[in-house]
Design a protein around this nucleic acid. Structure first.
Length: 438
DNA sequence: AGTGCCGGGAA
DNA sequence: TTCCCGGCACT
């Protein structure tokens, strides 16, 4: 209700304007997007004077009555003084030159801010039980959650493409899912992603291809490009085999090509769950991965990626049970076989989720180790939600494998000694289990 | 006996 | 640094 409305052309602008103003007034560093939205909206406002005024005041009233926005009391005030002060002697009063100046100013603001990472701290209180907003809160909390503020549609150039029809900086609906149970989170990632797409018919979906190579987050817009990138930078000029393996190392990410905020949001919300995470877009000025290349010697096993890598299910990960997003997280020990988690019904009691090694036709023989030891979704998930270790995927919660020692099953128990190759590396090395930490 | 993993050592 | 394992604590 709320957010969807706000996502619309008119109200969205107003909200954005308020937020921007509030941020400015409160002295905190304004959120880039909000500020952008503010600038943008003001520009827009000036271009359509009368219309703006009515809408603004109407919407302000509406806002003030909305519980979720009650904390924005400053904003309306400021906004009113700003808008109506100039608004009563409205924009029509202005000369074209002044309008143009404002546009220039706005452009400068955009330019100066667009490169700043978003360090958000809008202390947006919980909208409360009003339910108006699971997603209204998410609209800004998404920004909060994500560390990937540097996301930008067009990188450091400072140019922000903006879909006016979709001008609201409403990030994505999906952040609230972090509060929900982890498993739901996975589901909701998916669902929200779809919802998001459904809600934004205007923005076109575009696929980008992300390099899954550890520590490389290169994102390219063409599969050919990403293949070349992988072949050249990671695989080296190699044999036929390496040429065929390029597919293993990238994944396609669907993202919205137009709307910056919504593009970054779904990824951000996933990213935000991890520490020191970042999503690297190829279009960004300096993708960390681009300068960070792994010497071929480390290729086969090195799995420590410097950040969370967000992927869509690729050929590598399509069998992930319910997760749309894969998270690569850093391992102390290079963890994990390239396993895919799939729930295999087993007759023998509660073995629970049984990772099965089906890595694109690779066998699970320990000798043949695929190059990319990607983290299984389940494991990624566990690691990602290490803070909430008790809640696990349903397939696991069904089974009460709570044994006395510790609380979690370790690789040994889960896979058994006979499948030691599927243990996490730490377990194989008789170290503290990384996959199922206590 | 089975398990988890620390500490240490080999490569 | 990576990998492995003896050995201990614990169940």
């Amino acid at each position: 209700m709320g957010p969807e409305d706000r996502a619309g052309p008119g109200p969205g602008r107003t909200i954005a304007c308020q937020s921007g103003l509030q941020a400015c007034v409160s002295g905190t560093r304004p959120d880039t997007q909000q500020t952008l939205a503010y600038a943008q909206s003001c520009i827009q406002a000036e271009k359509e004077p009368g219309h703006h005024k009515n809408k603004t005041s109407d919407h302000l009233q509406q806002l003030e009555t909305e519980p979720g926005w009650s904390n924005l009391t400053v904003a309306p005030t400021v906004h009113l003084s700003n808008v109506s002060a100039t608004g009563e002697t409205p924009y029509s009063f202005r000369s074209p030159e002044s309008v143009e100046m404002d546009e220039i100013m706005a452009a400068m603001v955009l330019t100066s801010l667009s490169c700043n990472p978003v360090v958000q701290s809008p202390p947006q209180t919980d909208p409360g039980p009003g339910g108006s907003s699971s997603s209204s809160s998410s609209s800004s909390s998404a920004d909060m959650e994500c560390g990937g503020g540097e996301l930008s549609d067009s990188g450091s150039s400072g140019y922000w493409s903006w879909d006016h029809g979709n001008a609201s900086p409403t990030p994505s609906p999906s952040v609230t899912e972090m509060d929900s149970s982890p498993d739901e989170g996975l589901h909701m990632d998916l669902e929200h992603g779809e919802e998001l797409n459904a809600k934004k018919p205007k923005s076109s979906l575009r696929g980008v291809y992300k390099c899954l190579w550890p520590s490389c987050g290169k994102v390219l817009t063409s599969s050919v490009g990403i293949k070349r990138h992988i072949r050249v930078l990671h695989l080296g000029s190699g044999s036929d085999q390496t040429q065929r393996e390029e597919d293993f190392y990238y994944t396609k990410i669907s993202c919205e090509a137009v709307d910056t905020s919504s593009t970054s949001a779904p990824s951000q919300q996933a990213l935000g769950q991890g520490s020191s995470s970042h999503l690297i877009w190829a279009s960004c000025g300096s993708p960390p991965g681009s300068g960070l290349q792994i010497p071929p010697a480390h290729r086969p096993r090195s799995n420590s990626s410097s950040g969370l890598v967000l992927t869509r299910p690729s050929p590598l990960s399509q069998s992930a049970p319910s997760s749309f997003w894969q998270i690569h997280s850093e391992h102390l020990y290079q963890a994990c076989s390239p396993i895919q988690v799939s729930v295999v019904p087993r007759s023998q009691g509660c073995q629970g989720w049984t990772p099965s090694t089906s890595f694109s036709g690779h066998s699970n023989t320990p000798l043949v180790k695929p190059r990319c030891r990607s983290v299984s979704v389940g494991e990624q998930w566990l690691q990602q939600n290490r803070l909430q270790p008790m809640s696990v995927s349903p397939s696991r919660t069904h089974c009460s494998f709570r044994k006395g020692r510790g609380e979690a099953k370790k690789c040994r128990k889960v896979y058994g000694v006979e499948r030691k190759d599927q243990w996490c590396t730490a377990c194989r090395w008789k170290k503290a289990c990384q996959r199922f930490p206590d």
